[in-house]
Amino acid sequence: MTRKFLNASRLQDEVSRRIHRIHEVVEDGVKIRVPRPQLQEPDKTGCNWDMKHFGNAAGFERDIAAVLKAVRAEYNLSGEAKDLDSLFENFSGD
């Protein structure tokens, strides 16, 4: 399956949306902090990002892992994470 590309903010939002739709999370009224996806070399499945260190996630690790597995299978992180210096390459400070 070919993955679609999302930028970091949209990936973070998608993971958050799916986590906060899980029945137990809704039932417990928990707000889980979802970290920004981190670009990495593609793994054996071809996924080029990962997320670690979710906040307020105690007891929901298995659910979060299932969401991550599903989203990582659907999406790759777009190449927006460029070197910051390249953002100012054409900037003239005159």
Rank of each mutant, 00 (worst) to 15 (best):
V15T: 04
E74A: 11
N7Q: 11
E14C: 04
L77S: 04
D83Y: 06
S86A: 08
D94Q: 14
R36T: 02
A81E: 14
V67G: 04
A70E: 15
R21E: 15
E74H: 05
E80V: 07
R36W: 13
K82R: 08
H23K: 14
R10P: 00
F5M: 10
I22T: 11
N56I: 00
V67W: 10
S9Q: 13
D28S: 13
S86M: 10
N56S: 10
F88P: 01
G29T: 13
E61K: 08
N56R: 12
D13I: 03
R72Y: 05
E80S: 06
E89C: 02
N56W: 00
A73R: 06
N7C: 10
K44W: 05
A70C: 02
F60V: 03
S92P: 00
R3L: 09
K31Y: 12
E80F: 04
H53C: 00
M51H: 02
F5C: 04
D94H: 11
L84H: 03
L11C: 04
K82G: 01
D28Q: 14
S86W: 10
G59M: 06
P37N: 07
D50Y: 15
A70R: 10
A58Y: 02
L39D: 11
V34F: 00
H23F: 12
A57G: 02
G46Q: 07
S78P: 00
E24W: 03
V71Q: 05
D83K: 09
F88L: 15
E24R: 14
N48M: 09
L39M: 12
A73Y: 02
G79W: 07
G59P: 02
L39S: 09
L87D: 08
D43Q: 07
R36M: 14
I64E: 01
G46P: 04
D28Y: 08
G59H: 07
E74L: 12
S86R: 10
A8K: 11
F5W: 05
A70Y: 07
V26C: 09
R36F: 08
S9R: 12
G55H: 00
E27Q: 15
M1P: 04
R17S: 09
A66T: 14
N56L: 00
A65E: 15
L6W: 07
N90C: 01
F91E: 14
G59K: 06
E74Y: 03
R33W: 00
A8R: 11
F88S: 10
A73C: 01
A81C: 02
I32P: 02
R62M: 09
I19C: 05
R17D: 13
I22G: 01
A73W: 02
H53D: 12
W49A: 07
L87F: 15
A70N: 09
D63P: 01
T45A: 11
F5H: 09
L87T: 01
